[in-house]
Design a protein around this nucleic acid. Structure first.
Length: 759
DNA sequence: TAACTGCTCTTTTTT
DNA sequence: AGAGCAGTTA
């Protein structure tokens, strides 16, 4: 690229620069540097966990701007989270002189595409003030559609329908087409609902999350001029977490980059954990087929974790068939072995985690913030939370209910949305009788009929309620509501978001009502509204211009609960493994390592591979220590369940896993192989470890019949002690009939019962 | 209109 | 066990 231009640029740089040109590249290893400087043509970077992925993207952007003289406005960088986008922008900014990154297009797929759509969406028959429906909004519209169509909510679950519609949208199947191809009952129902739902969206002048991704493609197909315009704008496209792109994201990026083919993707197939949301791992696996001339860089130097942690992670992930082979290499010392903790139930498991946290703090001086506790499902957090509280360990749960999903916030936001887009019936229905104005369901239904008859919008019908011959009391209530809205609408044209929101609170008295209720809960809600108000003030201070309400709302719609900046407080982090992606902690606890929990119900080999990648993600978050834990019994859906140790434990190189006793799994295995000695109870427990620790990748944990035969005294975690009456069958299906001392006679599957032999 | 009750369902959820 | 929802009752 233009040498001269870059020289000119440099000449213009002030003499005192934070870093010189050479320093800048010297901060990278050789492969990273290659990836940063290969600026023309398609490039794929396979970035293993902790290998400096963000560094490569940000340096590349800085390099393009600083060394190749590319204008920031010609660079498009797409991420999946606001947090990643924010961090990227921040880092680019500090690599360049502050402020010179202005004009860069950095953002999530959704926010960037929303921004583009604001400019062109009228071509598709929406207006620019469209509302963005989040997953909840769209679910409620689907529910509404089902009611309209007289489809009972329990014959087909809303969640299922939402999933089917989302998948159809992301495969670019239109409602009509989908109706023709619909197979089973659910699909047929979904097809009808889909058609209705999509029409409703348009009536509401609203787009759902899927639309934000697929509408641009529709736009590009129907209006090639638009595409060309954008292709001329984005000379360089960079995509983070490429393994998580779905079909629409893949296609949109491909179209945008088609002219110049300067497409740069970074990702790690081993960390693809969102296939259930439509992410398509083949996008990254086939990048080379899509772009034959692509250069590939593999970043495998890991700066985060100890050698043992990587050894463990490598040995696990190597069992996946569908992957691009790579082994992470540690730049740290070997470190300590991993620790396997076994508990009798989930409470005890949580206690062990808590106790371990305390002892590591005392003995090794770790801060609370050094610890993270991961679990596979949110339901597991409750017990852990209880125990942390009891042990007085400060903690924070990530990914609990998002601020913006709280009822009071959604209500206030619904007003703002409606003020901006008075076709947004979803929001209207939310606020029409909130705060209570004696406008009940029956009245709403009549109003909708009235609107239908006249062929007008619901809000129009409200304003013209007098013509409908409704009760005077209702007409008055509606008029006062419309008065509030009109006032705010006209105010919104000139006033700031903050002013509009304050006025809204004054006119509707929502905060006052909550305050008056004076319960702990209502006061918390009151606080939340004040928080929203101060956010609005903050926003207004930074965006004094006219379109600020729209931008404010867009930020809210596209915000998530994982975006919250980590404050500096000292606490233990609790989160699902999914939420942990991209983070790192000195000490990591991976809990609930049991069959059917982690891996969670993996029926297909592909699903098992994804679970394994998830486990891989969990392990590679750790810098220094990993604790793996499982419980022999666990309450699930209110029922006690016997658990079997996760197969993943056995997939880790046994020579680097220690039990709490200090014994290495590999030693236990070796001793087992010699055999012969009388079996003690702890020894038997060890043998069970062995049974679940296959040496070959393909083998599954199976028969645990070791030492169990007729007459054996056994112990069961829940039923207590008993005598084996009978053993039926072999292998995975082996059952035993046991006479328990206090629990009576039971027949149990050996593989699930987790029996220990008593002497 | 709102409070109550019984029924169903339950993974993960970057936007 | 707990949430969310639909239908029922005060």
């Amino acid at each position: 690229m233009p040498e001269g231009k870059s020289r000119t640029r440099q000449a213009l740089q002030p003499i005192k620069r934070a870093r010189g040109l050479t320093d800048f590249l010297n901060e990278l290893n050789e492969v990273q540097r290659g990836a940063v400087t290969a600026t023309s043509g398609p490039v794929m970077v396979l970035a293993g966990a902790g290998s400096g992925k963000t560094r490569v993207i940000t340096y590349r952007i800085a390099y393009l701007i600083r060394n190749e003289g590319v204008s920031p406005a010609n660079i498009l960088a797409l991420t999946f989270t606001n947090k990643a986008a924010g961090e990227m922008r921040h880092r680019v900014d500090s690599l360049l002189r502050h402020g010179s990154a202005g004009g860069l297009w950095i953002g999530t797929f959704h926010s960037i595409f929303a921004r583009l759509l604001r400019n062109y969406i009228d071509l598709l028959g929406f207006s620019r003030n469209f509302t963005i429906f989040d997953a909840d909004d769209s679910k409620s519209l689907i529910r509404q559609s089902m009611t309209d169509l007289n489809i009972s909510h329990d014959s087909v679950p809303v969640n299922t329908i939402q999933g089917i519609i989302s998948r159809a949208k992301n495969s670019f199947i239109k409602p009509g087409e989908f109706q023709r191809s619909a197979g089973d009952y659910n699909q047929q129902k979904a097809a009808v609902i889909y058609e209705h739902y999509d029409r409703k969206l348009k009536e509401n002048n609203a787009l759902d999350f899927d639309d934000l991704l697929i509408k641009p493609i529709e736009l590009f197909n129907q209006f090639p001029r638009v595409l060309e315009e954008l292709q001329d704008m984005f000379h360089y496209i960079l995509i983070d977490e490429y393994q998580d792109t779905n079909r629409a994201q893949y296609l949109a990026a491909k179209m945008l980059g088609a002219r110049r083919r300067n497409i740069f993707v970074v990702g790690d197939d081993a960390q693809s954990i969102y296939s259930w949301r439509g992410a398509d791992i083949t996008n990254i696996l086939n990048f080379q087929d899509d772009y034959k001339e692509a250069k590939t860089f593999k970043l495998i130097e890991n700066y985060r974790s100890t050698g043992n942690i990587l050894k463990a992670a490598n040995s696990v992930i190597s069992r996946n068939v569908r992957q691009i082979r790579k082994e992470l290499v540690s730049h740290r010392n070997t470190g300590e072995p991993l620790t396997l903790m076994e508990a009798q139930d989930e409470r005890r498991e949580a206690e062990k985690v808590g106790e371990r946290i305390n002892s590591l703090r005392m003995k090794q001086g770790y801060e609370y913030s050094a610890f993270a506790v991961f679990y596979r499902t949110n339901a597991q957090s409750r017990v852990i939370e209880d125990i942390m509280r009891r042990l007085r360990i400060p903690y924070r749960i990530f990914g609990s209910v998002s601020f913006y999903k709280r009822k009071e916030i959604k209500d206030a936001v619904a007003y703002l949305r409606f003020i901006l887009n008075d076709r947004d019936t979803e929001s209207l229905l939310r606020i029409l009788n909130f705060p209570p104005r004696k406008i009940g369901d029956v009245s709403v239904a009549r109003l909708r009929e009235f609107a239908e008859e006249k062929g007008i919008s619901l809000y129009e019908a409200i304003k013209r309620a007098e013509e409908g011959g409704f009760q005077q009391r209702l007409v008055n209530a509606l008029a006062s509501f419309a008065g509030v809205i009109d006032k705010l609408e006209s105010m919104a044209e000139t006033a700031t978001v903050y002013e509009v929101l304050s006025e809204l609170f004054t006119l509707t008295s929502i905060p006052l009502l909550l305050q008056a209720e004076n319960t702990a809960e209502s006061l918390a809600r009151y606080e939340n509204l004040l928080e929203l108000l101060s956010m609005a003030r903050d926003f207004s201070d930074h965006n004094p211009d006219g379109s600020s309400l729209r931008d404010f709302l867009e930020n809210i719609s596209l915000a998530s609960n994982y975006d919250e900046a980590q404050d500096s407080d000292n606490y233990v982090s609790l989160m699902t493994v999914h939420a942990a992606k991209g983070l790192e902690f000195p000490v990591v606890f991976i809990t609930g390592l049991e069959e059917k929990l982690f891996p969670l119900n993996a029926y297909e080999p592909e699903q098992l591979e994804e679970e394994r990648r998830l486990f891989y993600v969990a392990m590679t978050r750790a810098q220094e220590k990993i604790f793996l834990s499982w419980a022999q019994t666990r309450y699930q859906y209110g029922q006690p369940h016997y658990c079997l140790k996760s197969m993943f434990i056995g997939e880790i190189d046994a020579s680097i896993v220690q039990k709490e006793s200090g014994a290495y799994l590999s030693d236990i295995q070796a001793k087992e192989r010699q055999g012969g000695q009388p079996v003690s109870r702890p020894e038997l427990a060890r043998r069970q470890d062995l049974a679940a620790a296959p040496s070959a990748p393909e083998s599954r944990p199976k028969p645990q019949a070791a030492g169990i035969r007729k007459g054996t005294m056994v112990h069961h975690a829940v039923f207590g002690s008993g005598t084996v009456l009978d053993v039926q069958g072999t292998g995975a299906k082996q059952k035993v009939r046991i006479q328990f001392r206090s629990a009576g006679e039971k027949t149990l599957m050996v593989q699930y019962a987790n029996l220990t032999v008593q002497r």
